[in-house]
């Protein structure tokens, strides 16, 4: 650890400010708390919100894991993991079960999380109503007055156009029967996992919003009575580990149209293969 940095890069006052926003977010599940987002040494869209939330949550004893689209070895994941190795000196891991703080982009780990873990999401656009109602003043009012009819208009449009709810990621959810929330661009396959034992924090750096889903909070995916929510999944087992319950990526393997489906969660896949070899 380089001593020129304060622990976890941010100064203590900033972390205090972020923690206050997190506390407020936890008390009002799904509510977007504004916070004074700082410039981070990475571009917007690379997880500046998530990094600030992680920085405010980390302690020297924590074990940190970063995933990007389920993988531990992609650019975004590697750079953020290195960032905290350097500025906080915390232990890092790729094992979901060993981590205490997990920062994620676009996935929830397949392995069930526990009460001792914190899952931090990187959120590009926190406002679920953004593309339906462009005025921020109006969307805030709609949240305040619980006017969420418009959210169903989006789902209606999906069915009218595609014959089913075609929204496959960033699928809107209602948290604890009150606030409609954008769960960040996770696939809708992950939506049921939003009801978790772990604390889930969402940070949007550019948009300067933090929101949270406390452990065991009720999270319901919006749907119609005659078109119920369906967490869809590619109809294949994983090519590498054979898992039939995980979210799959489609990978093109040659230029002759060859393709395989593999687990998007690399840690889950690797752990399964290890076990398979041992057995």
């Amino acid at each position: 650890m380089i001593s020129n940095y304060n622990f976890a890069y941010l100064d203590e006052q900033t972390k205090r400010m972020i923690r206050r926003a997190i506390l407020k977010g936890v008390s009002v599940p799904g509510y977007q708390v504004p916070f004074a987002s700082r410039e981070m040494p990475m571009p917007y869209g690379w997880g500046t919100g998530g990094v600030q939330v992680s920085a405010a949550c980390l302690t020297p004893d924590d074990t940190f894991k970063v995933i990007d689209q389920g993988a531990d070895d992609t650019t975004n994941a590697v750079s953020i993991r290195k960032f905290f190795e350097k500025t906080a000196g915390v232990a890092v891991t790729e094992r979901t079960s060993d981590a205490t703080v997990i920062q994620t982009r676009h996935r929830i780990p397949e392995t069930d999380l526990t009460e001792d873990q914190i899952l931090v999401y990187q959120v590009p656009i926190p406002e679920p109503l953004r593309f339906l109602e462009p005025r921020e003043t109006e969307t805030r009012k709609m949240h305040a007055l619980e006017e969420y009819g418009l959210m169903h208009v989006k789902l209606y449009e999906d069915i009218a156009k595609h014959g089913e709810i075609a929204t496959a990621y960033a699928y809107p959810v209602k948290v604890e029967g009150r606030y409609v929330m954008d769960p960040s661009p996770i696939p809708k396959f992950d939506n049921p996992k939003l009801e978790s034992a772990a604390l889930q924090l969402f940070g949007a750096g550019r948009e300067q919003r933090i929101y949270a889903v406390p452990p065991y909070t009720k999270v319901v995916s919006l749907d119609f009575e005659d078109y119920p929510f369906d967490p869809s999944r590619a109809d294949h087992p994983c090519e590498l580990c054979g898992a039939e319950d995980s979210y799959l990526d489609e990978v093109i393997v040659d230029d002759a149209g060859g393709r395989i489906f593999v687990c998007s969660d690399t840690d889950y896949c690797a752990a399964r293969r290890e076990k398979g070899e041992a057995a």
Binding site: E147, G149, L150, H152, Y156, I159, A160, F224, E225, D226
Partner: peptide, 17 residues
């Protein structure tokens, strides 16, 4: 259809058909 349906959904209609 969505334009007409919006007011229905705003007052709680949740059946697409």
């Amino acid at each position: 259809g969505g334009n007409v349906g919006e007011r229905l959904m705003a007052v709680g209609a949740r059946h697409y058909g």
